[in-house]
Amino acid sequence: MIDPREKIIKERFRNIKRIVSVAAGKGGVGKTLIATSLALALSRRKYKVGLFDLDFYGPSCHVVLGVKDIFPKEEKGIIPPTVYDISLMSIIFFAKEEPLPLRGKEVSDAIIELMAITRWGSLDFLIIDLPPGIGEETLEVIRFLRDSEFLLITTPSKLSLEVVQRLIKLLKSTNVNILGLIENMAMNNYMGVSKKLANKNGIQFLGSIRFDKEIEPAIGNPEKLVSTQFFTELEKIVERIFLTNQSH
């Protein structure tokens, strides 16, 4: 038996200039908020941007964007709906509000299916929001999207720092491109810990985003989100890593 879906995946991503996977060792470090805000920041600069929520157990990019009741269009595959000029693909369109308990092989199958049937069209950037850890979602991105660049997120907590190192080791062993490490929820009395970890592991430290008490009311409200301290600090990092010396 031959699975026909795998061969078409390359074709589906052919016209995407840069794929950026946002990943972390631990949950709760701000991957989704950073991935979605990154998509917003690039889209506001008139880039064509896609956002692929690959967190099947806790899809939430749509929550950050505050969207509901949208569905992809069917046209020789599925075409992601556009919200705030971002093409969004998420399992939420299919699973709705229900829990989706999947075992390993099924996670892979669902990812392969989504990759095989989604028609992204031409994009400057595709941002992928990965769930925490080094499970199927991360492995399938490494397997099928070899050009993906990884943007790693940590908090200054020992718990996050300890685990993100395993992810760095895995990514380095597979020779994928690691853009670097962003420290989220930075706190004054722990300055420098994430930078030290990045240096120790031979990856670039991209900057810190301070803990922002005003972020919670901005979730679900992109107009408000873009005016937060969090977003402004992320934008500075975005400017530096994506918008200067655009090599692609």
Partner: peptide, 18 residues
């Protein structure tokens, strides 16, 4: 029309094997 995407996947694979 999602059938088109799968048919395309089948043909791409068949041609690759051939």
């Amino acid at each position: 029309m999602h059938e088109w995407a799968l048919a395309e996947a089948v043909l791409t694979t068949v041609l690759d094997i051939a």
